[in-house]
């Protein structure tokens, strides 16, 4: 069953001058994660806002958990959780106060709201900071609290708009862990992101969007195949180039390319860090010291380049 369905959504801003969504269609199978991947200004936030009843589309249809979003927004609100692009929690209140307030607004009753607030604080590793005002929280803590607030009543469908944008690598890792836990619990999740790696980590299926349209969709494997997967890059002394080319070719199975100026040899690999390890070991056995070595993951830019022929140029982020 499709738990989220968007059909030919059109949304314009500024009296039709900005076409944010241009016949966008997508769907999410029950209990799975759809990653909506796109650069700034692609229409991710607009899509999430329409599906979560905050915005009406100019035309098109949207269903969430079998309920028409446009006709029965109040019913949809009972089954969804939303964590917007900017952590929407009350800065001045404490983490505990925030969760308590939202719990009460979900009509849990004071007693249950208290229990639930404490449960969520515990689960998101915020118990220690519970009695501090949000303005003292780090970006990652804010996002976790915001996510906690959207989980108060165990929603059937969860929308996360760029859950890790602006977080440092550690915050991002923590957030990924939290989201993966959630997904195990069986929630249907639509999440947006600008990072291919994030969609790869979290999503069962990815929809790539650009200028308000879905331009590709599929599992991350399918998309990565389209892009060419990871590339292994090794930099060595000039004297060792020939031998290194052989070693890399053996591991990759494909002919490596050579950047003579940088003395960098690179080749697509499908086994990631395993390939990296193998190359390093073989180089070592051959007595070659690598000056630099790394795996380059395909980025959103690579996906875009291969899908559209143009790169995902940054647009001003308005919403």
């Amino acid at each position: 069953m499709k738990t989220v369905i968007a059909e030919e959504l059109v949304k314009t801003y500024d009296k039709g001058k900005v076409r944010a969504l241009d016949n966008l269609s997508l769907d999410v199978e029950e209990g799975t994660v759809l990653g909506v991947l796109g650069p700034n200004g692609a229409g991710k936030t607009t899509t999430v806002r329409i599906l979560s009843t905050l915005l009406r589309p100019d035309s098109g249809r949207a269903m969430v958990a079998g309920i028409d979003v446009i006709k029965h927004p109040d019913k949809v609100r009972e089954v969804i959780g939303l964590s917007g692009q900017y952590a929407a929690v009350d800065e001045i209140l404490t983490g505990y106060d925030n969760l308590l307030m939202f719990g009460q607004l979900y009509h849990l009753g004071k007693k249950n709201a208290v229990t639930r607030a404490n449960e969520l604080l515990e689960r998101f590793n915020l118990t220690e900071a519970a009695k501090r005002p949000i303005k003292t929280y780090s970006g990652g803590m804010r996002r976790r609290l915001d996510l906690a607030a959207s989980l108060i009543v165990k929603p059937k469908v969860l929308f996360l708009d760029e859950p890790t944008t602006g977080l440092d690598p550690r915050g991002r890792q923590e957030m990924w862990g939290v989201i993966q836990e959630l997904v195990k619990g069986g929630v249907t999740l639509l999440l947006t992101t600008q990072y291919l790696e994030e969609a790869d980590q979290l999503a069962d299926e990815i929809a790539v969007i650009d200028t308000g349209k879905v331009i590709a969709r599929g599992t991350s494997d399918v998309l990565k195949k389209q892009v060419g997967g990871e590339r292994l890059e090794v930099v060595v002394e000039s004297a060792h180039i020939a031998k290194t080319m052989q070693i890399v070719a053996a591991v990759s199975g494909l002919t490596p390319t050579l950047d003579e100026g940088l003395r960098m040899i690179s080749a697509p690999v499908s086994t990631g860090s395993k390939a990296l390890f193998e190359v390093l070991k073989n180089l070592d056995d051959a007595g070659i010291h690598a000056l630099d070595v790394g795996l380059k993951r395909p980025s959103l830019d690579d996906v875009f380049l291969s899908l559209t022929g143009h790169s995902a140029e940054k647009k001003e982020d308005v919403a």
């Binding site: 009843t53 900017y86 929407a88 009350d90």
Partner: peptide
């Protein structure tokens, strides 16, 4: 500005509350 209104509006509460 802080997006709080969005959060409130996404809750199943009386919209005028």
């Amino acid at each position: 500005k802080k997006g709080l209104i969005d959060r409130f509006r996404s809750l199943p509460i009386s919209q005028s509350a």
